[in-house]
Design a protein around this nucleic acid. Structure first.
Lengths: 115, 115
DNA sequence: TCATGTGCCTAGCTAGTCTAGGCATTGCCT
DNA sequence: AGGCAATGCCTAGACTAGCTAGGCACATGA
């Protein structure tokens, strides 16, 4: 990740559900889309994404099927109904989190200049 | 934390520097200020905050002295010059991170409604 | 005197992410 | 034909930041 390590912690599920809510995709494509959508900020390793996808499927937020299209076999993931509502919850959580950080980081902007 | 576990990962240093940049404080007060400023979103355990303060001091971003005022002994932390610039860097990192998450989470808002 | 709030601290756990590997297919270039 | 890069899947184990759960001491007021 170009934004620095560790920042992602706890937000990955939301991001994966976010890209997949748009339209289904296989793991490799998820990584690319995440990189594109974030303008390069999220450049995740496969070892980060695949286990997370598996976990989300195990928890019923994603479902997968093997693509029947010719060429390399791909596991295509879709967001389930439960996944959609989980994403919606994640969005709310993210908003409060971001707002809280903004408040803490923002309120001392003025005092910063006077140092 | 009321916003959920794990989300804080990697953002704690920025938050601590943020509250202390306003004015120096001792650990216990840092926790209270964080709770107030975030409107209850960040309600951190002492076991989270104290080790982090120690680490920041070890890294030269904070300095501490024992309060000479009557009453209970308190270790009061101030942000050092290096801490101020670290905070500024953290602000930049936070902005790109938040922007990237917003982009990933935001772009599928419309498609969410049609489900 | 006994509980509650304040205030400091740390050892060890937990869990999500990352590292570092492995494997197979496709397509291109020489 | 051979080789290499890109695609595409996977997992075991390491790493580490934050959390749990405990300890200690003083102040205050009931």
């Amino acid at each position: 990740m170009s934004t620095g390590p560790e920042l992602l912690r706890g937000h990955l599920d939301a991001l994966l559900l976010g890209v997949l809510a748009d339209r289904p995709a296989h793991g490799y494509a998820v990584i690319e889309r995440l990189r594109e959508r974030s303008a390069g900020a999220f450049d995740l390793a496969e070892g980060t994404v695949y286990p997370a996808l598996h976990r989300l499927e195990r928890d019923g937020l994603l479902s997968s099927r093997w693509s029947s299209e010719p060429g390399r076999p791909r596991r295509v993931y879709s967001v389930t109904r439960r996944g959609v509502s989980a994403l919606s919850a994640h969005r709310g959580t993210w908003r409060s989190f971001a707002q809280a950080v903004d408040r803490v980081l923002g309120e001392s902007v003025l005092s910063e200049a006077g140092r």
